[in-house]
Amino acid sequence: MASEGRFNQQRYEREPARRVFAAELREATYHFKDGEDEKSPAYVLLPTGERCNRIFIIGSMTQKEKRGDQNVFYNFRVADPTGIFFVSASSYQQEAMQQVSRIEPPAFVAVVGKPNVYEAPDGRIFVSVRAESVTVVEKEMRDSWILDAAESTLKRIERFDQSADTALTQEHYPGVNLDLYRRMAYEALRQIQI
């Protein structure tokens, strides 16, 4: 009579999409896998002390570039008030790629995607975003996203000492200046014109 056991099994839990400003994501250099498995989720550690496997951003698509012949992919830039996100959509993300092909910059776009840290041959570290979905949205949504990202940044700063990733953050970003990120969020908010 009671619920069947098979319905109580722990289900796969989707990774939440973190809200992060471009200026913070650019500083994220440490990435890791949670587990040995090939399918274990990969994370980028944000300097304000939170791991992210997925992010959600809204900004202006400024440049779009189609690359490749056999395997077509798009690189494009999304600007927020603090800087630029470098985003890509390849044939591995068919749907995102087709969405991007239809968008002409400049346009406000919402991007759901996975952050990626890679090292250039000259040793410089880059962060890019592999898009899962790209849609055109209104300016009001962009403004709402800035509020959201500012609030998320503030929350991360406030629980910097008590987060699950505190030790990891202190190890990999020693002496991180949290006030910098607080000011970044504040400046982003000030750019919203009402």
Partner: peptide
């Protein structure tokens, strides 16, 4: 969700 002006002001105060 519409843009929330009050939340904007509140966050400016909190962060600034």
């Amino acid at each position: 969700v519409a843009f929330d002006k009050d939340r904007h002001t509140e966050l400016l105060n909190l962060l600034g």
